[in-house]
Design a binder for these strands. Structure first.
Lengths: 345, 345
DNA sequence: CTCCGTGGGATCGATTTTGTCCCGACAACA
DNA sequence: TGTTGTCGGGACAAAATCGATCCCACGGAG
């Protein structure tokens, strides 16, 4: 038996201690210099408890207190990833990954501890992990296509320059959508390109166009070129969302939303809506990437977390239009649960 | 970094928890059904604390309470060796073993957690470990020579039959000594033979004889035969003691003891007294094994623990008359400390 | 300058833990 | 069969810890 398992069998209370301590460290890491009170609110813990924790961590030299709040020390930053790996082992996430990889027939699954629905910081972990994965798999000369959305925006935000420049081209996989500029594929492509050290192209077109207009728009050379690049992408990175949420963000009329629900749409990815079986039940006409282009893309990475997105994940993955899935513990466990309950039926 | 090290760096209080819990489990293991109060006294802990610990362990199913006291459950017995190994890792005993093996130029060193001087149960661990080692290295037909002493007596006591009979012959390496029958090499040889499933011979001769009488005694065929077996032994298992202690047990006159001290004797093994440099400074004439026989014995195992025996261990090991050393943490750390302080000089 | 958020110190019930009894039960023993 | 010693469990006051707030001096931002 694994020594760590032994430990937790003989002293289960350690689990709580570690999780607590990790949560505090991570919050400090992400929230920069932060005060005791704000931290308590962030972690939904009583202030006094946080205070004890901080004193402890301060004595151990993992955090340093300043007038503007507490910050991670060098030691703290060093130990955080180690602790992260420990939490993964403790919660058996490696096993979870393996099980999912096998059951869903994917190339790889990466599961981040936590649940994005409950803890917004988990989304940042997810994003960081996606960036790390991306950095590892991109080669010079690659074309990377990215979609929009809150998850991808987070990915772009956490993608800082790491010194190693990659000669990649980042292109948006779809057109513009909604009002928030931060969530646009264009913005995300630009930020990612900057972080990776490559270049980017913009797609100056709306995501939602009348079907008969698609061809007309494609006549425009600047658009045509980007779309062409996009369809020859080596890597596609896209967010996975629930159908309902995405429909709302797209500003679809209520009648369309109703129609989606009636057809059983649960998941969305790059403009396509999937039902539980992984069938496309609706799609918005677009100048961007299309279903038939996906088969030619060597590596498709789907990112999405939160227990609420389990159905969406499952639906998107089902037909194999996703090679690598980066998700979180909440979603992963729910997916397993769904799969198991289906087996029993 | 080792995940366990990470754990202890971020949450040092775990160490205390684990040690405590281990101590309780081990005490229950050795002291059979034992009451809450007796256990508290045994472990020098307040009764209430032990009570909490017991309630905990009982809930986890590692101990079962009965009217005669608490006992280890099956699960408890299963987890104890795992926990033992964990403690070893936690305290870095494997590294300690390696360092000692290398520095002292031995075949192997085994270090058991704890300090025999402070905790008598550690001596039992030491004994159990010695038995385990012995079981692994003995082959059918081997001759095993054993010395006397408290440590070896403990080894013999904890050597129960394990189902697997070994056709070995156990012979005492030295003659009778002192008054306590349990500490005699003869008794120990008999018990060990029984535990290992082999046979034994007895050496009916005193350990301390006038030099001029040795040859006369050896004329006696029964003695001669045993001594001959002994000198052809494949494995020699002997205890390592401090010179002072052994001299007292031998009942040497004060003047002799003084002489030993003057000559710098610190360690004793099978009748030979060694000084710090590992030189023999005194020896009791005996019909048993002699210094010159040792070179022909393929495997010499020395057993001895307790911080107080560090000097003795070092002196006995120095000249290489010991291939494998089984000791405890207290002694091992002290030995390292001594070696390091000598280097600095 | 003001103002907001910070760490540190302090207060004060509420709660939990600790130290220490006592009790009935049971097994060993006389 | 009665005595004795130890067992687990119950009980309870003392002590420590916790939880929820205060206040205060300070320091950086506006």
């Amino acid at each position: 038996m694994n020594p760590i398992q032994v430990l937790h069998q003989i002293a289960p209370e350690i689990k709580a201690i570690i999780e607590q301590r990790y949560a505090v460290l991570r919050a400090i890491y992400y929230k920069g210099p932060i005060g005791r009170r704000a931290l308590a609110q962030e972690l939904h813990s009583p202030e006094r408890l946080i205070r004890n924790e901080l004193e402890f961590l301060s004595e151990l030299g993992y955090v340093i207190k300043s007038s503007s709040g507490v910050t991670l020390s060098l030691g703290g930053e060093r130990i955080l990833p180690l602790l992260w790996e420990y939490i993964r082992q403790m919660r058996g996430l490696s096993d979870l990954e393996q099980e999912l990889t096998c059951r869903l027939n994917l190339k790889a699954v990466i599961v981040v501890p936590g649940n994005s629905d409950q803890d917004p910081l988990v989304k940042q972990d997810l994003a960081k992990t996606a960036v790390r994965y991306l950095r590892n798999c991109l080669k010079d000369g690659d074309i990377l296509a990215v979609s929009g959305g809150t998850t991808l925006a987070e990915v772009a935000k956490s993608c800082g320059l790491d010194g190693h420049k990659r000669r990649v081209i980042v292109v948006p996989a779809r057109g513009g959508l909604g009002e928030d500029v931060e969530l646009q594929a264009n913005t995300i492509a630009a930020k990612l390109a900057q972080g990776l050290g490559g270049s980017y192209r913009l797609l100056h077109a709306p995501d939602n166009v009348e079907p008969q207009l698609v061809d007309t728009i494609l006549q425009e050379p600047s658009i045509r070129e980007v779309v062409s690049l996009c369809r020859r992408a080596h890597v596609l990175l896209h967010g996975i969302g629930t159908a309902e949420e995405m429909a709302k963000r797209r500003g679809l009329h209520d009648e369309y939303v109703m129609q989606l629900i009636v057809r059983g749409a649960v998941g969305e990815a790059f403009g396509y809506y999937f039902n539980e079986q992984g069938e496309v039940v609706y799609s918005t006409a677009s100048v961007g990437i299309r279903m038939e282009d996906l088969a030619k893309i060597p590596l498709i990475i789907g990112v999405g977390g939160g227990k609420s997105k389990a159905w969406a994940l499952l639906s998107v993955i089902r037909l194999g239009y996703c090679d690598v899935c980066i998700t979180d513990e909440g979603a992963a466990r729910k997916v397993i649960q769904i799969l198991k309950s289906k087996e029993e039926m």
